[in-house]
């Protein structure tokens, strides 16, 4: 921190000197011998700046521009592109399956508040002194570090209507479970349950850290004022973990909008009557199975814009509701 500010002020100083010096600075270096070091540092600074900048240009800006152009073409991803203007976007409006897949994608987000509530409850539970606490924390975290593909296959078996684990458990309590992944009504809830289960450990961990950093004094003060535990939770814990909630909501929505692997493995055809197909899955299928790369790119751009809008709204809402405690 200090070094960088020193360099900045140093460079302004030398620039001023250079401008006023009548002779070229190369021949008479100003500042008595600092210039070689200065030049050396400046070179390295530029190289360090160049690395992320070029990375950004090559791997973000260029692909984005390319995608925008590709979305205006008819292109099979193999041959030459043919410019067709906004035709892809017009077609997109009439694409019933894209509408369904967008709807499904947002439907899956029902899982986000459920997951957050559960993980907050778990985090509070884990915050107490419990026998075997570490073991529990580890167990809840295992799904997070497991391969999503492997988990999806396991859940596909668990959801098997005939002899899957889920229905066997339901049968114990006398419920005749549905054929989860082959039923239009139950396929989406099935995926949500799995996604909640998978994400629980991660959210729990963040909440746990947030809860543990809430100053004890707040609770003590509230207790003296006669607040019961629910009131303490409502008035202290919940607002104090709000930054974490905000972070989780934003990242979960962005990740949720891109849900793909589970869908592709658990319901390879997009589910009965397209009931599980997510937007990204639909895009992927158009691009790589039907070789409609231009059209798929147009859909990806629409999805990207939707995510951007939602995120901006969230930031706006959060700013309005935020507060600071010093």
């Amino acid at each position: 921190m200090t070094t960088s500010s020193a360099t900045t002020s140093g460079s302004t100083a030398t620039a001023g000197l250079r401008a006023s010096a009548p002779t070229p600075p190369r021949k008479t270096p100003p500042g008595g011998g600092t210039s070689r070091l200065h030049r050396h540092e400046q070179k390295w600074a530029l190289i360090f700046v160049a690395a992320p900048l070029i990375g950004y240009l090559a791997f973000t800006l260029y692909p984005v521009c390319f995608a925008v152009y590709a979305s205006l073409t008819q292109w099979n991803g193999l041959g030459p592109m043919r410019f067709i203007g906004l035709q892809n976007y017009v077609n997109l409006l009439g694409d019933e399956y894209f509408r369904i897949s967008l709807f499904n994608t947002f439907f899956y987000m029902i899982g986000i508040p459920i997951g957050l509530a559960l993980s907050l409850a778990l985090a509070i539970a884990m915050n107490r002194k419990l026998y075997g606490l570490t073991a529990f924390r580890t167990i809840y975290y295992i799904p997070v570090i497991s391969s999503l593909a492997a988990i999806a296959i396991l859940w596909q078996w668990a959801y098997n209507g005939d002899f899957g684990l889920v229905n066997q458990v339901l049968a114990f309590v006398g419920i005749d479970g549905p054929n989860w992944l082959a039923s239009t009504a139950w396929a989406k809830p099935a995926i949500i349950i799995m996604a909640v289960w998978k994400g629980l450990g991660y959210s729990m961990l963040l909440y746990l850290a947030a809860i543990q950093s809430v100053p004890r004094s707040l609770y003590e003060a509230a207790q003296l004022d006669g607040a019961n535990s629910w009131q303490r939770f409502r008035a202290i814990t919940l607002p104090m973990v709000r930054p974490v909630t905000f972070f989780l909501v934003v990242t979960n929505i962005i990740a949720g909008a891109q849900i793909f692997t589970e869908i592709n493995i658990m319901t390879p055809g997009g589910g009965p009557e397209y009931s599980t197909a997510s937007a990204v899955w639909h895009i992927w299928r158009q691009a790589f199975r039907y070789q409609q790369m231009g059209y798929a790119t147009a859909m990806a751009i629409v999805l990207g814009i939707l995510i951007l809008i939602i995120t901006l709204i969230q930031f706006r809402l959060n700013r309005r509701n935020s507060f600071v405690i010093d």
């Binding site: 078996w157 098997n160 209507g161 005939d162 992944l181 082959a182």
Partner: peptide
């Protein structure tokens, strides 16, 4: 065939 609802090959 097994389970009238069943259309998955896995089973």
């Amino acid at each position: 065939t097994p389970n009238p609802e069943q259309a998955q090959t896995l089973d």
